[in-house]
């Protein structure tokens, strides 16, 4: 974990209530896709944990949905600096992917799939991505994933784009995959867990206090004992989850 100041390079709306923010600063503590950062905002006591969509040696891209006071504040930012804790959480294990990994993201669970997808393709993997949204106006990053070289399926609950239904409906169309990675709302994670035919990794959300393992606010029980979503997660292996 590292605490440092980041410059806001850009902050733009990319779908309904969805914003993409690019930050410039010290990214040296980010070591795996699926990690998150924790952002201090003026006037709010707790930091806001946001998953990392993409990063390189100088910039971090985050995608967030305006759901409350903190993200509302963030959506109005135009330049300036942010006090951020970086390098939080365990992230995904890309070594486990096999040759044909399946990535499944739902809503703001899509962003952590992006850097993961980039890394897997760089490693020569044949990546398929399923992105689930409520409706067409919620869809983002489809072409960005395609540009990385992934095969992309979009699902919308109302059928206004792609396959009508849930991500699990798209999973039925994928004949074979070697491993899966997923992030999204918990009912979706459970659906993916039940529908999955291989081992895999699931990234969970939780209401956090500190974001770095000190407060025990986001603990969960697993088959291998109590784990903190923020520090021992947010990524849990399929085999350890107790629903």
């Amino acid at each position: 974990m590292k605490q440092s100041l980041f410059d806001i390079v850009s902050n733009k709306k990319i779908a309904r209530d969805i914003y993409e923010m690019v930050l410039y600063g010290d990214t040296s503590d980010l070591v795996r896709p699926g990690q998150f950062i924790n952002i201090k905002l003026d006037g709010l006591f707790l930091r806001r944990p946001i998953s990392v969509c993409d990063y390189d040696d100088k910039t971090i891209t985050i995608i967030y949905k305006v759901v409350g006071e903190g993200t509302e504040k963030m959506s109005k930012m135009d330049g300036g600096k942010l006090d951020i804790l970086t390098g939080l959480g365990n992230g995904f294990d890309i070594e486990k992917s096999g040759d044909k990994p399946l990535l499944i993201g739902g809503g703001v669970g899509v962003p952590p799939m992006f850097n993961l997808c980039r890394k897997l393709i760089e490693n020569g993997k044949d990546v398929t991505v399923i992105m689930g949204f409520m409706s067409q106006e919620d869809v983002f990053y489809k072409t960005e994933f395609e540009k990385l070289g992934a095969k992309v399926y979009v699902t919308t609950n109302d059928g206004t784009e792609g396959i009508k239904g849930f991500v699990t409906d798209a999973m039925k169309e994928i004949e074979a995959y070697t491993y899966f990675y997923t992030c999204g709302p918990e009912p979706m994670l459970k659906g993916v867990y039940d529908a999955s035919k291989t081992s895999g990794e699931l990234s969970f959300e939780a209401r956090m206090g500190c974001g770095f393992g000190a407060c025990m606010g986001c603990s969960c029980e697993t088959k291998y004992g109590n784990k903190r979503i923020c520090k021992d997660g947010p990524v849990l292996k399929k085999e350890e989850i107790i629903w």
Binding site: L44, A206, C215, G217, C220, E221, N226
Partner: peptide, 10 residues
């Protein structure tokens, strides 16, 4: 284990 989640509120 402690109490069920959520157990943090701002």
């Amino acid at each position: 284990f402690g109490n069920p989640l959520p157990r943090i509120a701002e």
